[in-house]
Design a protein around this nucleic acid. Structure first.
Lengths: 312, 312
DNA sequence: TTGTACGCGTTATCAT
DNA sequence: ATGATAACGCGTACAA
């Protein structure tokens, strides 16, 4: 290493890291020797071994292509990445395939966000004492939870519809998952005998297709609640395509509070603090890595009444 | 370590890795001792140092939120992730912030894909001899290139419009970048005095807004070429909103060949092999990590004539 | 087939 | 302010 070249040995370490004061002349000699020998700073691998940390945090998001298709997922990832990045940590994408068990991860974020449960190699991570932060996921012991008021938000939205006089209400659900179940439970607090249209991805075309079949057969509802804004946008478009006016003939509501550029109206929805969810998650990760205890968090939501719902 | 606990010492290493034959009884003892001591396999950090590899590949994509908003970016990421994942490597997201210089990356993918050039800490990576694979980027020495026939594809599309009789053609461009420049150059091969409408992101609303201002003032064109399908979709929607029929009054073309669920017509576009681009990139990365030489690649595109273009 | 010993390149501790 | 030394945990060449 550069030590032999310059003069001293582990003073070089200090010259680079700056953890202890080093006199200016020696520092200069070290850097000069380093560059002449083509040495580009401490080897990250060795540093990692020594410090017991890799500087990499995994984020499990299921199938990548579908996970990021949802506009609610991106700002979350963005916020996580920003906070982690400014702490010098990298973010590693974990698909639902394997092999990641052998990667040195300082922590793992398990972001279900509307996707299936249970595909994560949870036991491996626990065995290796990797801190686990679960976002909107099922309850596992030893992990930190970041959740959102899915149930209360959905209930508030349902109450709004009830206030408008709606009684025959249908629900378009997401795939089975923790947030899906919570949101449905919230809606059922107000409308116990809800008609469930069916389940589909948070995808415009999928929602249109699903609701199209529904409207063909039993249009006997005055409102359709969706578990995501993208689904709601699809429902609005499909309703209009059939000549139904929204909210005149049909009220439509969503969940998330993301932009819906396909619509010229403001969706009635439950706005969740997506960026804050990401920041909170990242800070929880950093705290867990630092060995601190972190309390679970439930983030508040806000009912936004737009133009897509009206009197029954 | 588990060695002391069981009976043997570093035979344990072989028991886990299986690089050399180990007798069944000893292997059993090793595994038993390991689990009773709560030992969960070799420490990835130590293994990495020993092997000189981290198993992590970085992918630089600029601002995360905007990078993945483009539907052409996801399948690429997906393919890269799949190939790398099945080789046991992880994919680390590199935003445009810093700090990643201290992470142990075995290689870096520089995926500009329609974004600004020049923000990558290129020198650092070269200094550390990190293999660099540049996708659709500017030419740097010592890196491997994966490119697409932007220019030829754009020229072919322009020729198609010319054949249809179009002479007054406008262009909606992406942000300054390598593919943007190449695509424009291809279009200009056929229409040297192209009217450039302006530059905008690959975003539905942005394209609508941009072209709306254009149609207000100078609707003296018979065709609008866009540098992405999403832009083209926005242009079609905006044209129709103004009562123009597509392709009756205005022909519109895109680039990419991605799904456009907002439209009920098939866009005339240049289809690029996105998934193959990802797989090719990943294989190039693996080869470079293995120390092999990798030739640059230019992937072919295909002109798809849809319903959005017609006679002038 | 199994055990021994060394080195990967750092950083932290301790002494100078 | 600087230098020596140990240890992080593994892989592997070599010896038994």
């Amino acid at each position: 290493m550069a030590a032999a070249a310059g003069v001293s040995l582990s003073t070089a370490s200090l010259a680079f890291s700056g953890n202890k004061p080093v006199s200016e002349p020696t520092r200069a000699r070290v850097l000069a020797a380093a560059s002449s020998l083509g040495y580009s700073g401490p080897n990250p691998l060795a540093r990692n071994l020594r410090q017991g940390r890799s500087g990499v945090v995994g984020i499990a998001v299921g199938q990548l292509s579908t996970a990021f298709r949802d506009p609610a997922a991106l700002p979350m990832l963005d916020a996580v990445s920003e906070v982690l990045g400014s702490a010098g940590m990298g973010l590693l994408l974990m698909g639902d395939d394997e092999g990641h068990a052998r990667l040195p991860l300082d922590a793992v974020i398990y972001d279900v966000c509307g996707r299936e449960d249970g595909w994560l190699p949870y036991d491996d991570l626990v065995a290796r004492d990797v801190p686990l932060v679960v976002v909107e996921g099922p309850a596992w012991p030893g992990t930190t939870f970041i959740d959102v008021e899915h149930r209360a938000g959905s209930a508030a939205l349902a109450a709004h519809l009830h206030d408008l006089g709606h009684r025959r209400v249908a629900l378009v659900t997401l795939e089975q998952s923790h947030p899906q179940r919570e949101r449905e439970a919230g809606t059922r607090e107000v409308f116990p005998d809800l008609h469930v249209v069916g389940e589909c991805a948070s995808d415009l075309a999928a929602a249109q297709e699903l609701v199209s079949a529904f409207l063909d057969t039993s249009p006997d509802v005055t409102a359709i609640v969706c578990q995501s804004d993208v689904q709601a946008a699809g429902v609005v478009l499909e309703a209009r395509r059939r000549g139904l006016s929204v909210p005149g003939d049909l009220s439509v509501a969503g969940f998330d509070g993301v932009p819906t550029p396909w619509l010229d109206l403001t969706l009635t929805t439950v706005v969740q603090p997506i960026a804050e969810k990401g920041r909170t998650t990242a800070h929880a990760v950093l705290a867990r890595i630092a060995g601190e205890h972190v309390d679970d968090v439930v983030l508040p939501v806000e009912l936004r009444i737009g133009d897509s719902t009206g009197p029954a």
